[in-house]
């Protein structure tokens, strides 16, 4: 019989069986916004709310805000694949270099 108990440093702790909560809406443990070199910029005037960008986005980074009736873009997860720009029938999306925007920094210590 043994009374031995491991001492595991806090930062190395893992839940029993490595079972973790699954992300429901967003996964803050897997932010992918820093994968992109360009972001899609929307011209709300020209947007017809056809929802093509919402349908085609592989990462669900476009959604319709029902209050303002505008398409909203999620900077934290958009990988900059530009599929939305390609699929927009109203030509209201344009790609623009990420460094043209001083704000919206997604800075991480480690990449995923």
């Amino acid at each position: 019989m043994s009374d031995f108990k491991f001492k595991i440093p806090k930062h190395l702790e893992v839940p029993m069986g490595a079972v973790i909560p699954a992300p429901v809406k967003e996964n803050p443990g897997m932010i992918t916004g820093n994968w992109r070199t360009e972001r899609p910029v929307i011209d709300h005037e020209a947007c017809t709310l056809c929802l093509n960008c919402f349908i085609f986005c592989p990462d669900a980074c476009w959604h319709l805000d029902e209050k303002t009736e505008k398409m909203m873009w999620n900077a934290r997860y958009c990988k900059g694949c530009m599929i939305c720009v390609n699929e927009c029938p109203a030509d209201c999306l344009t790609p623009q270099n990420e460094l043209d925007f001083p704000k919206g920094v997604v800075r991480l210590d480690k990449p995923f």
Binding site: F4, K5, F6, K7, I8, P9
Partner: peptide
């Protein structure tokens, strides 16, 4: 000995 994980 479990290096790094031994109790004090």
């Amino acid at each position: 000995y479990w290096l790094g994980f031994e109790p004090d």
